[in-house]
Amino acid sequence: MMCTRSGPAGTFTSTGEGTLTTAAYTSRAVHGGGRIKGGWSIKDALREGIAIDLSLQTHTHRGWTIVSVGGELDLYTAPQLRDAVAGVLEDDGPRIAIDLTDVGFIDSSGLGVIVSSLTKARDQGGDLALVAPPASSLTKLLTLIGLDATISTRASLDDLPDA
């Protein structure tokens, strides 16, 4: 049995008994301020050509400017984080913490933006801290790439040192 579905995002085919019409996909991706959990359908993905932007919010906490990120950090969304951090560096000074608690996925593109943001903050005489749970995608990627010894993460905002 051949099954083919086409949508704006591309074409999906399956053969044999592998008709994959729905799949449970629990994602912590945040879209438009809301939270999407479970029930992602491959048909939905093909129909919508889903491209979910990051959720980015800033606030201050104990002298730090916090950039809270939600969603998935990849080639498409990493520039959004880059631009947000660049804006904060320009407006609020170089003591920034990026809260990645609600980031469900990060790849080398996302990590590259984080590294470059860290460099820029330090070039301005400040610092950039990362907040992420110990078992997060970020900490795993840092370990895989060999940056875990040079880039530390805090488990929560409360672990940030006083400004």
């Binding site: 995002a9 591309g10 074409t11 999906f12 085919t13 399956s14 053969t15 044999g16 008994e17 592998g18 994959l20 799949a23 449970a24 996909y25 994602s27 991706a29 992602w40 491959i42 993905a45 093909l46 050509g49 889903i50 491209a51 979910i52 998935e72 990849d74 080639l75 498409y76 996925f105």
Partner: peptide, 25 residues
């Protein structure tokens, strides 16, 4: 046997779609 396949334009905006498909499959 029992293969599933997806073909996509190489557009950065569709990286999430690719990940979703592969993970679900």
């Amino acid at each position: 046997a029992d293969e599933v396949r997806i073909e996509l334009p190489a557009d950065a905006a569709l990286a999430l779609t690719a990940r979703m498909f592969v993970a679900a499959a």
